[in-house]
Every structure is written in C-alpha cells, then in structure tokens.
Simulated scan of single mutants.
Amino acid sequence: MKITPDIPAPNGILEAAIYVDDLDAAERFYGEILELEKIQRIADRHVFYRVGASVLLVFNADETEKPPQNPDLPVPPHGTRGPGHVCLSMPRSQIEAMRKHLLDWNVPIDAEFDWPNGARSIYVRDPAGNSVEFAEPHLWG
C-alpha cells in the first residue's frame, strides 16, 4: 500500500550487486558455468552480466570501497562483506536443466524445494560464498 500516492513507484530492479573477493573465480562461475552474457569487466574492480532486462553487478568489495577516480562517473564508494544473495528467474524445466548442468560442473546444490505456492527453487554457492538461487517467476507472483 502506497502511503504517499503522488510519489512515483519504481517499476522494477534495473541492477543488483553482489560482492566477491576473487573476481577471476566469479567470472569463471557467472561467465563460464552459468554462461551469463558479459557486458564488461574493468580490471579487478567489477564484471557485469546481462540477466534478461536486468544487470548483475559483480564487484570486488575492496575496489568499490575506494573513492571514484573518474570525475565523469562519480559513483559513491560502496560494498559489503560476507555472503549475499541473488535469485535468477527461470521456468521449472530450465531449473531442472540448470540443476543437471551445475552438478556436471561439480557445483553442489545447497537446497532444492517447492515453496508453499508451488514455485521451485534451487540454491548453490558462488566461489565467494554468495547464495545463488534459481526460482520460478511466480515465486513472488
């Protein structure tokens, strides 16, 4: 319920960020294993991936805590420590195919189950320990 009706509501999440300590290992996981479309990598600072209409930002936390070096892109320092979470949406048939693909790459499944509304989820860990979930789109629908 909107408290202030004249304030515009966002219509989606454009990007989500996770933080890692080894950008090369993260790039292997998200780029090679998950085969996400890489948008760009900047040295040891970040690698970005397209996920449908959104972008997954994978940052080296040590580098994003530093002040910006480019005055044309004054992104404030940010970052976090410890495992985060990202959920990637896909239909059940693709989740099952992804499950097999992950196991073929020796990526262990942390958990897999159906939610009370019937949506399927599986969880794995990326090399930094972030929780990566694959879930049916109607999980929140």
Rank of each mutant, 00 (worst) to 15 (best):
I39G: 00
I39D: 00
R41W: 05
R41I: 06
R41F: 01
I42D: 05
I42H: 06
I42V: 10
A43P: 04
D44Q: 11
R45N: 01
R45D: 07
H46G: 03
V47I: 13
V47W: 02
V47K: 00
F48M: 06
R50M: 12
R50P: 10
V51W: 00
A53V: 08
S54K: 10
V55W: 04
L56K: 05
L56I: 10
L56S: 06
L56Y: 04
L57M: 15
V58F: 11
V58Q: 04
F59E: 02
D62Q: 14
D62Y: 04
D62M: 10
E63H: 03
E65Y: 12
K66T: 00
K66R: 14
K66M: 11
K66A: 09
P67A: 00
P68R: 01
Q69A: 10
P71I: 12
P71R: 10
L73N: 14
L73I: 15
L73F: 15
P74C: 11
P74S: 15
P74D: 15
P74G: 05
V75N: 12
V75T: 11
P76H: 07
P76L: 13
P76C: 09
P77I: 01
P77C: 05
R81I: 05
R81L: 08
G82N: 04
G82H: 08
P83K: 11
P83E: 04
P83L: 04
G84I: 01
G84S: 03
G84M: 00
G84C: 08
V86A: 15
V86D: 01
V86Q: 04
V86T: 06
C87S: 13
C87Q: 09
L88M: 12
S89L: 14
S89A: 14
S89M: 10
M90C: 12
M90P: 07
M90D: 06
P91Y: 02
R92T: 12
R92L: 14
R92W: 03
S93M: 07
Q94A: 14
I95C: 12
I95Q: 10
E96A: 08
A97I: 08
M98T: 15
R99V: 00
H101W: 13
L102R: 02
L102P: 13
